[in-house]
Amino acid sequence: MSNLKISKLHKHFGAVDVLKDINLDIRTGEFVVFVGPSGCGKSTLLRCISGLEAASSGSIEIDGQVIDDVEPAQRGIAMVFQNYALYPHMDVFGNMAFSLKMQGLAKDEIRRKVEAAAEKLQLTPYLDRLPAQLSGGQRQRVAIGRAIVRDPKVFLFDEPLSNLDAALRVRMRMEIAQLKLQLPNTTMIYVTHDQVEAMTMAQRIVVLKDGKVEQVGTPLDLYERPQSQFVAGFIGSPRMNFFTGRHAETFKAHTVGVRAEHLDIVGAGGVWSGKVVYSENLGADTFIYADIGAEAPVVVRQPGKSVFAAGAEIALVPKARELHLFDEAGRPVPK
């Protein structure tokens, strides 16, 4: 069943078109990630769903009901903000209870709901603390708890981890994934510019670019079958190698893309050859950067500790099945 349906959504700020003809169908209980470079409109799209921003045209439905004119608080959505947006003068309990208080719930019911949510998020010992007395991760959990108590149909996250350090980000990513398991019927929409976050958390990813949906699909879909050069380059790390000109002519395409792990190093007679510029040894993998006369050095991923000195001659063979061919417009060319 479709939980959230967005049709023909447009949004412009003055003369600037931020969102152009967005159509999306999100199922109940799905975890969907909006990803894209900054300025692609992903946050604006999330804000249109939340009602914090009004769409210029088009409509949004939740559970079959058009909510375009419904106020943010009445849409059955909850949102976790980038900077948490905790009320600084209220303790954790007060922050989590505020929306229930605004709904006019009875005191003991509020207490019961807040305590249940705090239990779920291991916040019980901190209920009487002020936000300033909490660590970054705890604040993040309070922000989530504040959303949980409302028992929303749709749960929105706006780059919630971007203010945390790297280690904490990985841990919170796991916690949010676990939270999703605990709330199987709650739809979650998560906005990030970090494709790793998108790949690890999403059931489906929506890639946005310049206010348009570039591709929708599961993480592996996007990785293996990118529908545009942009998606191919955006998803995956290290970035996909792209060649144009004579390197691409061999394959009768405008652009050829190949991922670092889909290049084999051969002794001689490879498709491309050149010199090693630099190599990065990460322990489990080694990334070798080689100059083969293309615009940028090509990255090759080798398992284990391969040793290539700078300047060493190298020949490369791409795995033919893993090549991505694109035309001038960046659209895929059938092989």
Partner: peptide, 20 residues
């Protein structure tokens, strides 16, 4: 400085009207 737009948005989502 202190009453950020994000905070006002959070309040709007929490269902608080202007006087509240």
């Amino acid at each position: 400085q202190a009453l950020t737009t994000e905070l006002l948005e959070a309040a709007a989502l929490d269902g608080a009207r202007v006087l509240k």
